Computed example of a mutant assay.
Amino acid sequence: MPPRRSAGILLFRRTPQLQVLLGHMGGPFWARKDDHAWSIPKGEHGEEEDAETAARREFAEETGHPAPAGLIPLGVVRGSKVLTVWAAEGDLDADAVVSNTFELEWPPRSGRLQTFPELDRAAWLDLPTARTKLVKGQLPFLDRLAELAGA
């Protein structure tokens, strides 16, 4: 069975220090967690779909904003999924982020489906703060961005 694939875009800005836009994962499993409960806007895609196309689609779905034009490849990290990420310099209002939703039976075995946002909020974070918030499997992308940006 081929590995699950995911792709995303790490938006960054310089104000003057480097900041990244991350989203807090939505749903009941993440509701009371903050450290290592934030993510790069990303999502799964099939083997037949181009990873950059998927990253652009997922960014738009998870932020409610179109993906930026100029993408800089940050490479791949292999864990439970194969995650491919691009960086892009840009700015958007984190408070205006509106994510798509998913349905989940909640509480478990209740028979009730509830709707939750993929990302329940977004924020611009400096790199030291982002290191404490980002899920551990995505941390290598912060290092790659810092190297690329000379931070």
Rank of each mutant, 00 (worst) to 15 (best):
G8E: 03
G8A: 12
I9N: 05
I9V: 14
L10M: 09
L11N: 04
R13H: 07
R14E: 15
T15C: 14
T15P: 06
P16N: 13
Q17P: 02
Q17Y: 05
L18G: 07
L18C: 08
V20T: 12
V20R: 08
L21T: 05
L21V: 07
L21E: 02
L21K: 02
L22N: 06
G23A: 13
G23I: 05
G23W: 01
G23M: 07
G23N: 08
H24G: 11
H24Y: 02
M25R: 15
G26C: 11
G27T: 05
G27W: 03
G27M: 11
P28K: 13
P28R: 15
F29G: 11
F29H: 09
F29P: 01
W30Q: 11
A31R: 14
R32V: 03
R32Q: 09
D34R: 14
D34M: 05
D34H: 08
D34I: 04
D35K: 09
A37W: 01
A37D: 09
A37P: 03
A37T: 09
W38Y: 10
W38H: 08
S39F: 09
S39Y: 08
S39T: 09
I40Q: 05
P41T: 02
P41C: 08
G43P: 04
E44D: 15
E44I: 01
H45R: 13
H45W: 01
G46D: 15
E48T: 05
E48A: 14
E52A: 13
E52D: 00
T53K: 11
A54E: 03
A54C: 07
